[in-house]
Amino acid sequence: MKVAFWLIPTEQAFYQSLINDLAQRYDAPIFQPHVTLYSGNFERTKILEFLRTPIDLVLAVDRITHSDQFTKTLFIQLVSNPQLEQLSESTQKYFGSPYSLDPHLSLIYAHLNEAEKRSLSEKIRLRDRVIRFDRLSAIEVPTHPQTRDDVESWREITL
């Protein structure tokens, strides 16, 4: 099954509020705030074992930016650090396949024009210049999410 492992922020309520506000304003899907650590096709037993990995990670905020990619419409770009790199490497070893890590926390998935994305990236204010992550989550996802239906089909895999 295609699974994404997400790092979940400690201050989840703050980021969830940003996501919810933008989703309501632009009629976009609501999703859980996260940073994708790894994704691929895995056996359920390995997924459940990996979810037991303890997480305590702090990442610095680089900037709020945007792209043409649906799953990176508007996002907080984070700065990788040795702790994240080591977690990423150990994850790749555990699952036996490479993954290109790009630490970011998306704020909206929508098809917005360039001017709107730029305006939003300039207006959003964060509480801190760092984000702490304290939990890992596994989400069953479609291969290339491009629509609201794809995002709304995501399902968390629980222990």
Score class of each variant (00 low, 15 high):
Ala28Tyr: 01
Gln32Trp: 00
Ile30Leu: 14
Arg63Cys: 12
Asn41Trp: 06
Phe42Arg: 11
Thr53Trp: 00
Leu48Ser: 10
His66Ile: 11
Ala60Ile: 00
Val61Ser: 09
Thr53Lys: 14
Glu49Trp: 00
Tyr15Met: 09
Arg44Tyr: 06
Ile30Trp: 00
Glu43Leu: 12
Ile19Gly: 07
Phe42Pro: 06
Arg52Thr: 09
Pro29Asp: 12
Leu22Met: 02
Arg52Gly: 13
Phe42Cys: 05
Arg44Gln: 14
Phe50Arg: 08
Tyr15Lys: 03
Ala23Val: 04
Ile64Ala: 09
Thr36Arg: 10
Thr65Asp: 05
Pro33Leu: 06
Ala28Gln: 05
Arg44Glu: 15
Ile55Gln: 08
Asp27Asn: 13
Gln32Phe: 01
Asp27Thr: 14
Phe50His: 08
Ile47Leu: 04
Asp62His: 13
Ser17Asn: 15
Ala28His: 07
Asn41Cys: 08
Ile55His: 06
Leu57Tyr: 00
Leu59Cys: 10
Ser39Val: 08
Leu59Lys: 06
Ile19Val: 09
Ser39Ile: 04
Leu18Gln: 12
Gln24Trp: 01
Phe31Arg: 06
Arg25Phe: 00
Leu37Gly: 08
Ile64Leu: 10
Ile64Gly: 11
Pro29Ser: 07
Ile64Pro: 15
Pro29Leu: 03
Val61Tyr: 01
Leu51Asp: 07
Ala60Pro: 15
Tyr15His: 08
Gly40Met: 01
Arg63Trp: 00
Glu43Trp: 01
His34Asp: 03
Leu22Asn: 03
Glu43Ala: 15
Ile55Lys: 02
Tyr26Pro: 07
Leu59Pro: 01
Leu57Met: 03
Leu37Thr: 09
Phe50Asp: 04
Ala23Met: 02
Thr45Met: 05
Thr45Tyr: 06
Thr45Gly: 02
Ser17Val: 02
Gln12His: 11
Tyr38Ile: 01
Asn41Ala: 13
Ile19Asn: 06
Lys46Cys: 11
Lys46Glu: 14
Lys46Val: 02
Gln12Cys: 14
His34Thr: 01
Leu57Lys: 06
Leu22Gln: 04
Leu51Lys: 11
Phe50Cys: 10
His34Gly: 07
Val58Gly: 04
